[in-house]
Amino acid sequence: MTITVTSATRQLYIYQLLASGAHLSKKDIQRKFSVDARTVQRDFASIRNFMSEYLNEYELEYDTKDHTYYLKSNRLGLSKSQCLVLIKVLLASRSLSRKELDPLISSLLALLTQQDQKDIKPIIQSELDGYVELRNLKDKQLLAAIYTFSKIILQRETITIEYTTQRHKFVTRTIAPIALTFSDYYFYVVSYNHQFKKNTIYRLDRILNWKYATHKIPLNERLPFDLGDEKKKFQLMYPGKMITIQFEYTGIVEAALDKFPISRTIKKIDDHTFLLEVTTYDTGALMWFLSQKDMVTIVNPPEFRQQMKETLYAMLSNYED
Rank of each mutant, 00 (worst) to 15 (best):
N220S: 09
R206E: 06
G130E: 15
T148Q: 13
L204A: 00
L227V: 01
S52A: 07
Y249P: 08
L112W: 00
L24T: 05
N199H: 12
R156D: 04
K118C: 00
L101K: 10
V189N: 02
I161A: 04
S291H: 08
S25N: 10
Q115K: 09
N49T: 06
L84F: 12
I153M: 05
A145E: 09
K259I: 02
E57K: 14
D184Q: 14
L128Q: 08
S25G: 15
Y188M: 06
L101I: 04
E57H: 14
R206Q: 09
I3E: 05
A179E: 14
S79K: 13
Y238G: 02
Q115M: 00
V89Y: 07
Y131W: 05
D66N: 15
K138Q: 11
F304N: 14
M315R: 04
V35P: 06
Y62N: 11
L91T: 05
K27H: 05
E230W: 06
G130A: 12
T265R: 15
D28V: 07
S107D: 10
Q41N: 11
I269C: 04
Q292T: 02
A176F: 13
L109E: 08
T283N: 13
R203E: 08
Q306R: 13
P218H: 04
F187C: 03
A37G: 02
G240F: 07
L219F: 02
Q292L: 04
L112E: 07
L76N: 14
Q246C: 08
A110C: 04
V171D: 11
N300Y: 00
L290R: 14
T280Q: 07
M287R: 15
L24I: 10
L112Y: 01
Y185T: 11
Q30R: 14
T244Y: 07
K72N: 13
G77I: 10
A176E: 13
S46I: 03
T174L: 12
T158Q: 11
T148K: 13
V190E: 12
M51F: 09
D139N: 13
I217C: 06
V132D: 09
L219Q: 10
I29L: 12
M1D: 01
T164K: 13
D36A: 03
A37C: 06
M1G: 01
L257N: 08
Q125H: 05
L76Q: 15
Y69D: 08
Y192I: 08
T280F: 07
Y238K: 12
L286V: 03
E320P: 00
S183F: 04
E310I: 01
F304M: 14
R203D: 09
L91G: 07
Q115C: 00
I105S: 01
F44Y: 06
F247E: 10
Q41P: 00
L180M: 12
Y188E: 05
E230N: 09
Q246G: 05
I105Q: 09
Y58H: 06
D271T: 08
R94Y: 01
R135A: 00
D102W: 15
K80Q: 07
L142W: 02
R173T: 03
D116P: 00
Q155I: 03
T265D: 02
I201N: 14
L12F: 14
K32N: 04
G130N: 15
A110E: 11
N318T: 02
L312T: 08
T200I: 15
D205I: 02
M287Q: 12
F170C: 06
S150Y: 01
